[in-house]
Amino acid sequence: MSGDRGGESAPGPGAGPSDVFRLDGKRVLVTGGTRGLGEQIVRLLAAAGARVATCARTAGDLGALEASLPTEEPGAVFTEALDLTAPDRLEAFVQAAAERFGGLDGVVACAGGARGRGLEEADARDWSATWELNVGHAARLVKAAVPHLRRSGGGSVVVIASISGWKPGPQAQYGAAKAAQIHLAASLARELGPDHIRVNAVSPGSMLIPGKRWDRMRAEEPERYARFTAEVPCGGLVTPLEVARVVAFLLSDASSGISGAHLPVDRAQNAPTPNGY
């Protein structure tokens, strides 16, 4: 799988504020910001001068993240522990973040994941939960953020999808949900364009993260890992930092002409897993 899993603890070399599009004064909300790609996005946005709000399930993880961010402005980071699939919790967090920052300029729907295994093993609850974690949460986030983005004169929405959304691989419920996210972003770009709200989808490839699935495969099953990465012609799996840089660009004014786009960040990867079809 790709998209929402694993994470680096901090941006790597070349991730300083001078190396990203500046976001000074931008107020951005990111869901799922304590691990994996979400953490990289939060760290990169903070380094670029943005004020960042993020949520996750575990208060301890949020506290550790907030304490480790090198922000110069007091109150530049706002966090809250919540289950974003719980009724009204995500909406309340969006409202609280907008009140804390005096508005919002961007949101990133990064939280996601999958439940269940193959078709004959997954039940209706697995399909429903996977849909809600990905499509439902993204739609609710954008809906809650629109009034605040509109009052700010417009803004940028980034939906984190996955290459699994159009390259077939297991499990089908995950790929179907990611495909729906890509369509959601394109449709909302048209609907919200008159309010100067841009909406784009970013699809990470399988991300290489220390200690996580593909890194363990590289150490424990080198021949299988070599066969898998042989289908990535640009030199190995993508990293969360590389994906986060694209998200930062889409949140910046430098990307003002881009809306309704779907941007894969996968180094031209083919199958999304070693078991791709």
Rank of each mutant, 00 (worst) to 15 (best):
W166K: 10
R150W: 01
E223Y: 03
G175I: 04
G165V: 14
V142W: 00
S187T: 13
K212L: 04
P147I: 08
K212N: 13
H196D: 15
N200Q: 08
P170D: 09
A180V: 05
L208K: 05
I209Y: 02
Q173V: 05
R216L: 13
R224K: 09
A172Q: 06
P170H: 10
A180M: 13
P222H: 10
G169C: 10
K167T: 14
Y174L: 07
G136T: 01
L141V: 01
A138V: 00
G153L: 00
A186P: 00
V135S: 09
E221F: 07
V159C: 15
A145V: 04
D215N: 06
M207E: 11
L188G: 07
I163R: 04
W166Q: 13
S164F: 04
A185L: 12
G154V: 09
H137Y: 10
G153E: 09
H137Q: 15
M207A: 05
I160L: 14
A138M: 06
V135I: 08
A186S: 04
R140A: 04
V146A: 06
E191R: 12
A180L: 11
P222Y: 14
A144P: 11
P204I: 08
D215A: 15
A138D: 12
L208H: 13
R216F: 08
L184D: 06
K178S: 09
R218D: 10
Q173A: 14
R150P: 14
V158D: 10
A161S: 15
M217L: 14
R190M: 15
P222A: 13
Q171R: 15
L192D: 05
P210R: 13
W166A: 12
I182N: 03
L184H: 10
P194W: 08
I197H: 09
G205H: 01
H148F: 15
E223F: 07
E191N: 12
V135G: 00
L149M: 06
E221T: 14
K143Y: 12
G211T: 05
V158M: 11
R151V: 05
S187P: 01
H196S: 14
W214I: 12
I197Y: 13
R198V: 10
A186H: 03
A177Y: 04
E220P: 03
R151I: 08
V142L: 08
V142I: 05
W166V: 02
L188A: 10
R140D: 03
A186W: 12
I182Y: 04
E221G: 02
V158A: 11
S203F: 09
